[in-house]
Design a protein around this nucleic acid. Structure first.
Lengths: 164, 164
DNA sequence: GTCAGTGCAAACTTTTTGCAACTAC
DNA sequence: GTAGTTGCAAAAAGTTTGCACTGAC
């Protein structure tokens, strides 16, 4: 399964590099492999780490940025600029991303929603060819909700004792 | 119309500052006023500029960052981390944002879509209180589409003459 | 052999932090 | 007066750029 996907994205990369007379460097293919053997989000730093330790293939930061930007334009990876940190993820076969983000603790959860996929699909944009989308739903997760109610309770008790 | 909105957001700020024993500094209110007299997206830099020239009220960058983060958590402004630059916008009364982004030229257009609003409204997220959302639809704008077709045409002609 | 691509370091941009001075309460 | 805020400068984090060297073609 996974191999099939890797083969497919490698073919896309092959094709692009050949078409544009760019070089098939080991860096590009190793980075692509490393990305597609990762599940979920990762930071540039984490990818760098992984390449060094797991793949025994250290590359420079500049190369990582270059290569990620290349993959970004080929839509082989997606980039999300979250609060404080930029994260990437493999996104071949899946250009649609829904995330729920807790505005209290910053926790990010990826969710699937065929309804949203459909709604964006049907969304009418004038003179614009849609390729994919990212949806961020902001709110408060259950953990933070309980935390908030607890804190409020404490505060009101404190206020009560102050006025007594 | 606009005054009404400003009054409303000032009340939210008032309330928050009083509740949490934070100071009602001129900076905070002037920055809020400046933001709510701006239409559409703006960068921190632009806001800084505006405060200095239009409002004759220069503040330090650190204060701007602090204040914007405060407003962010109060949901009085929204932040978008676009390719290369971070943009803010006033968002009281409107926590839902849809943007179409051209992946070729980076052009960003804000769009309204009651259908999407509805779809996200109806989206079921387990144990999560939704407060608002941001949707980014990626694709290619008409200008870039025509540019691409022109370029492809040129390339194929070039290839043709090469093989001749 | 050539030139795109890489590594490295430096530059640059953006954001955060530490601290003294200030001021709203 | 006190503690939250600001301004300034320095630091930290994130990203881009210039240049010499390397290696894919």
């Amino acid at each position: 399964m996974k191999d099939k996907k890797l083969v497919a994205v490698e073919r896309i990369l092959d094709n692009y590099l050949e078409m544009n007379n760019h070089r098939k460097t080991p860096e590009r293919y190793t980075i692509l492999k490393a990305i597609y053997s990762t599940n979920g989000h990762f930071t540039l730093e984490e990818l760098n780490e992984k390449l060094s330790t797991d793949w025994n293939f250290p590359v420079s930061r500049a190369t990582l940025y270059n290569t990620l930007n290349l993959f970004l334009s080929l839509r082989l990876v997606a980039r999300h600029r979250f609060q404080g940190s930029t994260k990437y993820e493999a996104c071949y076969d899946n250009n649609n991303h829904c995330h729920q983000i807790c505005t209290m603790c910053g926790k990010v959860v990826e969710v699937k929603s065929p309804e949203i996929d459909m709604a964006v699909e049907n969304m009418h944009l004038r003179r614009f060819r849609k390729d994919g989308f990212t949806l961020y739903v902001y709110g408060v997760c259950s953990a933070c909700q309980t935390l908030m109610t607890k804190r409020k309770k404490k505060e009101s008790e404190k206020k009560k004792s102050n006025t007594e």
